[in-house]
Design a protein around this nucleic acid. Structure first.
Lengths: 205, 205, 205, 205
DNA sequence: CAGTAAACGAGACGGTACGTCCCGTCTTATG
DNA sequence: CATAAGACGGGACGTACCGTCTCGTTTACTG
């Protein structure tokens, strides 16, 4: 799905079906191998030569579709995006717990957190990667908007509360545990984060 | 063997003066250039050849002191550690504000945050780098222990409160802003983080 | 196969007018560009891609008409052949002087001598090119036969004289100057060659 | 021998023995393979990658010693030079016959004639190769000077006779047979060339 | 104060990867 | 059916860097 969109994005003029078929096949093979390599050995371990070797796609062809190794990585990374649905449990606590729980679980089990630091690092210097990263990032912060909005309507949150601060208050500590401390992301910790955030959000009477 | 001695040189003042002198001179020159390169072009821009070229120290010598490019980077990064003093303003809020304010400032102005993601990424796979990184990390989390302890004595914090959760609650959102959301780390945001944390720490009566 | 047909197209007027027209147009365009490229940058500078680019003829089409880059070059070169008329000045000296003078002039001013070494080189290994080259070569040696024959009738040349040796005696030194010694092909030199050859041809009384 | 000189030419400062040893070994291996390839498949068949593969010398190292494929070829070709001794049979005819006979034999059996057209072609555009070629060329024309000079002293040749014309008169037809006609370089032909040249050189009484 | 062992410089070397150019094949749509 | 358009696998080019490996040359302590 994400991939299809990518294809379309790339070939805006819609070209001709057959060409797209061949192109898609190549790109698919290349991106698959790229992601595999990325997960196995990190972004640094992805070399165009190796991708060519493993995918059976000629290096020339790879460079026909992506102007540089970097561009290939960006494209591959853009496949990582997970589009979480917005939970609706009826209460702010329930919604936040669902979001935080899901994130905590992903941080521990999914493969994309392995790669994220590489991206952040690359984004520090490469604006193109930065853009991709921004898109990826908005993926896991987007559900918070609707959740807070609903809570506002229910009177659980002050009208003035900034959403991005809530996101930071929940996602921040989780990410911190994952990358900056290396302590476990257990239920107790996640509950603490939610409790803290809720305590903070409690509307002043 | 050479390595072992090198290690010792680093940790302890001196074994044999002469050796230390020459070794130190070389290492110093190399590390200086390495850091400069790192800040200029990121970790990716640090190549042993370039370091040798700029520092005037032969590549051979560099490899005599560090077993790999990676090790050199780690060593250079370890110089970045800032050992923050423990603030003592008399109140928990004051102490946390001091710590958070200092960190926020550093995140925006200091040069080491530029490099951190590279380290985290490398740490994801290289245990040696992971160790160095852990040491570095403990630098900015260590002052929280004493601060919380004092607050506990003053009755501002429940006895059961886990320090690492407090660190996560404060440092987490700050880091999040720096690397994951790129929104400004302004005073308002920092104050929000402190408020939220305090709200959470408030001992249940 | 394609070649055979191509050959026929060249030799005969038309099977089906329209087809021949299109084929001829393509071939014409391709060969023109090929020759231009050849003269501009030498045989090494002729790449099928570049010919396609400049001529507007698709690479596919080029390969339909010529099985390889090499074949294209050969074909292009074969256009270089100049069919010199047989001079008839009344004397052997006059005839040979005319032939040698013309050749000397061409060697210095015409564009095909630039390319000849490439062909010779290629001919060293590629029999197809060798054949084309032979055809080309026979072009400038053919007039010597009639000239010598006439001289024989006039008694200027011994009956036993081998024509090919005369050709070698005249063309050889000229070519030598052009490619092997790079000294100028001036009138004096050409006259010397003719004198030498005549001295040699003088029939023993 | 030729090789030794080359080495010395390359490393004028005489450097250090061991380094030269290593360098010489590499260069030797590379040049040997290069020449082999050149004879097998012509200059066009020499690729740096292939040379690296066959010689076991890394491509990097090859490029350390020669700035380009072209330079490598030039160097390899310079090994082809045969330094013919100046014959002294007592008569001009004998000397020329010796020289021409030797050349005719080489043209048919030696390996360098295989490569010469490639060189001439390359020389047409590359001045560096042109220089090497000039050096090579002077190799087989140099003995004619002394031979003619001696003949002059014996009164066999006019004082005004230009040496280069003699060279052209002998070498020219031989080369012509080799590369431009493809007829055999038999004894009869060589004798004819010598006779013709002598007829021409006979001093006017 | 000479001898010695380390640290050092210089740089050759094999190797992997980069990104580019060209070759010749192929597939499909268009006239 | 010739053609335009262009993707594709493959090979070579020349460059940058990695980490290894000689070798001779300081340098400063020791005997």
């Amino acid at each position: 799905m994400a991939e299809k969109k990518t294809e379309r994005d790339d070939a805006e003029p819609a070209d001709r079906a057959d060409v797209n078929t061949r192109v898609r096949r190549s790109k698919e093979a290349v991106l698959t191998v790229t992601l595999r390599l990325m997960f196995e050995e990190g972004i640094g371990g992805v070399s165009v030569d190796e991708v060519a070797r493993r995918s059976g796609v000629a290096k020339t062809t790879i460079y026909r579709h992506w102007p540089s190794r970097s561009a290939l990585l960006v494209d591959a990374c853009s496949r990582l995006s997970s589009k979480p649905e917005v939970p609706d449990t009826g209460s702010l606590r329930g919604d936040l717990a669902a979001l935080a729980g899901r994130l905590a679980e992903q941080l521990e089990t999914a493969r994309w957190p392995t790669v994220l630091p590489s991206m952040i690092d690359a984004a520090e210097r490469d604006p193109e990667i930065a853009a991709t990263y921004a898109r990826l990032r908005s993926g896991f912060s987007s559900p918070y908007g609707p959740v807070i909005e609903r809570a506002r309507k229910r009177g659980e949150v002050a009208r003035t509360q900034d959403v991005s601060e809530v996101v930071a208050a929940i996602v921040g500590p989780l990410f911190y545990r994952r990358w900056f401390s290396r302590e476990p992301l257990d239920k107790k910790f996640v509950k603490g984060v939610i409790d803290g955030t809720l305590a903070r959000l409690k509307p002043k009477i």
